[in-house]
Amino acid sequence: MGIRHENLDAITRGHMLEEIQIGDHYMSPRLTAEGLAAWPGLMQEAAQHHNDDWLAQQLINRNLLRSEESYTRDGVTRTRRINQPHAAQQLGEGEFNRYYIRGLCQRAEQEGKNELVIYRGKDVNTPRPESEVKIGTGVSTQTLLTTLRRNDFVTIEDAIGVPGGPNSGLTCRLP
């Protein structure tokens, strides 16, 4: 189950689409050539009509993820299998959430608000203490927007300073 986005409505979706039009999408190395070609359109379709669960499912249904990836440890390059359902969920949730928050930042600023409030939009088995302390706090829309517009795999955790990587279930809402 994906992230619950409290302010995912027509207004926020419209701002998400504006952010998607800016381009410079994160192009995951886990996507196949077909996946790389389809990714911008899938993201747009998800923002217009669906959610992160739909986006992740499309990656699986359309076979758009690689089955293996290479990585280097201790100077040795190795190959490992990709857990495709997990990779699809992580990519779908992370990128949908990133565009959702970018769109929400635009909406908040248009409504005269200069911050969003952090909340946990998805239950996690073992919440990190670093993410727990962020829940209920405000974060600058300008800081979020600037950070989340980078085209690498930037997550909400990166933007608000939570160490440990993605999958915290954190997102934002209007104050």
Rank of each mutant, 00 (worst) to 15 (best):
G94M: 04
S140D: 15
N63E: 14
E18N: 15
L65V: 01
I135N: 04
G112Q: 07
R80C: 09
I160V: 11
I82K: 05
T32S: 10
E6L: 15
I82R: 02
G23Q: 10
Q48Y: 04
P127R: 08
R120G: 04
L145N: 12
L65S: 01
L31T: 09
R78L: 12
N167F: 14
I101G: 05
L148G: 09
K122G: 03
E69N: 06
P29L: 06
A47N: 05
R149E: 10
Q89V: 07
G2I: 13
N167D: 05
L65M: 02
K113H: 15
P163G: 07
D158I: 00
E109T: 06
T141N: 10
G165V: 01
L59I: 00
A108F: 11
I11L: 10
T137E: 14
P40N: 05
L8S: 02
T79L: 13
T143E: 15
S131I: 01
Y100M: 03
V154S: 06
T171I: 10
G161D: 09
L145Q: 09
A33C: 09
A46C: 09
S168L: 04
E45W: 01
R80Y: 07
G14L: 01
G94L: 02
S70A: 11
R98N: 00
E157R: 00
C105F: 05
T141I: 12
A10V: 09
R66H: 14
A33H: 12
A56F: 06
E157W: 00
L59W: 01
R62Q: 14
C172W: 04
R4H: 15
V162D: 01
T155A: 03
L59A: 00
G75D: 06
R120N: 05
C172V: 12
G121N: 08
A108L: 13
N167H: 14
Q48D: 03
Q48L: 13
R73L: 13
Q142V: 09
L65Q: 00
D9E: 10
K134C: 06
L36V: 08
D9K: 08
L65R: 01
W39T: 03
R173C: 12
T126A: 10
G94H: 00
I82S: 06
A46D: 06
E132S: 09
R62H: 12
N51T: 05
D152M: 11
T79E: 09
R98P: 05
N51L: 06
I101R: 06
L36R: 15
P40H: 05
H15G: 01
R128H: 07
S140F: 09
P166E: 03
E132V: 15
T171N: 08
I82Y: 07
T12F: 07
R78T: 05
A46P: 00
W39G: 05
R13T: 11
I60G: 02
M16K: 07
G112M: 04
